[in-house]
Design a binder for these strands. Structure first.
Ligand code: FES
Ligand code: FES
Lengths: 138, 138
DNA sequence: TAATGTCCTACCAAAATAGTAGGAATTAAT
DNA sequence: ATTAATTCCTACTATTTTGGTAGGACATTA
């Protein structure tokens, strides 16, 4: 399951997606509207900014906004930044690969199945975007 | 990601699948061959027994064996028993549903996307079985 | 009744999760 | 220049989950 932090990230990003092209939105506004703990949200938004999904402006009239179009931010990207690997096992992760201890990759049937599962999941998560989230509301 | 415990469970089950129809296998044998901590493995096997995937025999000549055919044990079942929910959010879990706090299910676009992702993942995990794991070795 | 095995209860340390606190840095308006 | 508004940074903390271990009770077979 995704962490609450990741769920918060999605809610915040969906909020910002609705404001794409408009003025920046303050953290406090997002926290209030989306009911996310303020200081926790601060951490999340900075992380998203550090990977260039968001941009920020300080001082009066400042806040956060999406750096790129909601159509170009897919769900897999967000999950990887905030939550980590999408694959079910480290040995099948594309972005966070680690060798399984005491298991031989060549002959491992578990691994082969988990590759199939991963590809099936990724097919959805890499195709669906923030834009799909906000249009799905209707 | 799946816990190490779940990965151990799969390794043990794959081992037992290869012995399906034969004599029961001792915990200590599985622990040794699959390199799983013995006492930890005990816990795992008891859990799998409690949901009727395994059967056990005590005393000399005893051990564990699959209670049903490896073709009838799918990966989703194993994951749910040892690891918990497969869905990415509590609000889209079929077997471990919980309401999201501060999020309205009717209008939530995040939820709608995660349902699609869940179905895609389940399509694989519910179709693939222990038998697929052991034949995939070749 | 002794040996062989599973089963049960309880405990433990390390890591991850879900935050909180306090202030520094930057920008904009006065 | 000063002040107010806002993000940004560092660090701390409590709770839960993970990944085990220990010791013996219970059941089965020879
Ligand atoms: S190599 Fe990763 S599970 Fe076997
Ligand atoms: S209802 Fe579960 S994420 Fe919105």
């Amino acid at each position: 399951m995704l962490s609450k932090k990741t769920q918060y990230a999605f809610r915040a990003l969906a909020h910002l997606a609705l404001n794409y092209g408009k003025d920046p939105v303050r953290i406090s506004t997002i926290a209030l509207k989306e009911k996310i703990p303020l200081k926790f949200l601060e951490n999340i938004l900075v992380e998203l900014k550090n990977v260039d999904l968001l941009e920020s402006k300080k001082g009066k009239g400042g806040g956060y906004s999406l750096k790129i179009s909601p159509k170009k931010i897919n769900l897999a990207t967000v999950i990887r930044v905030i939550n980590g690997p999408i694959a079910l096992l480290p040995c099948v992760s594309l972005n966070f690969y680690e060798k399984c201890t005491d298991c031989d990759e060549e002959t491992c049937g578990i691994r082969k199945m988990m590759i199939i599962a991963r590809d099936s999941t990724l097919k959805v998560l890499e195709k669906k975007t923030l834009n799909d989230i906000i249009i799905a509301k209707d």
